[in-house]
Computed example of a mutant assay.
Amino acid sequence: MEIQWRKSSKSSGVEGNNCLELAEHGGEILLRESDNPDVIVRTTRAKLRAFLGGAKEGEFDDFA
């Protein structure tokens, strides 16, 4: 089964090559950057949900 990648609506770049892409495959959530598609980060729904919740709450603002 082919992986169906989805791009973030917040992605930028005229050519569409500056995008974060997500997919669900085999019970895992996959993440990659469109300009480096061979590097794939694998995680679970629960871990991604926790990360996104932390990002929304500003837990990682000191990294910027």
Rank of each mutant, 00 (worst) to 15 (best):
N36D: 03
E15M: 13
V14W: 02
P37F: 00
G54C: 07
G54H: 06
L31R: 04
V41F: 14
K56F: 03
N36C: 01
L31N: 04
N17K: 14
L31Y: 02
E24C: 11
G26E: 07
N18T: 12
K47L: 14
E28I: 00
V14L: 10
K7F: 05
E15R: 12
H25G: 02
G13E: 05
R42L: 04
E24R: 13
R32F: 03
D61T: 07
S34A: 11
R32C: 03
R32M: 04
R32D: 03
L30E: 11
F51W: 10
M1T: 11
F51S: 02
N18C: 14
C19Y: 06
L30T: 12
S9N: 09
Q4K: 12
E57G: 02
S9M: 08
R49A: 15
L48S: 10
L20A: 10
E21K: 08
S34C: 11
Q4N: 05
E2T: 15
T43V: 03
R49I: 06
A55G: 10
S12I: 13
N17D: 14
R6T: 13
A55W: 12
E33Q: 04
R32N: 03
S8N: 07
E57W: 00
E33C: 01
E24M: 12
G13D: 05
S8P: 06
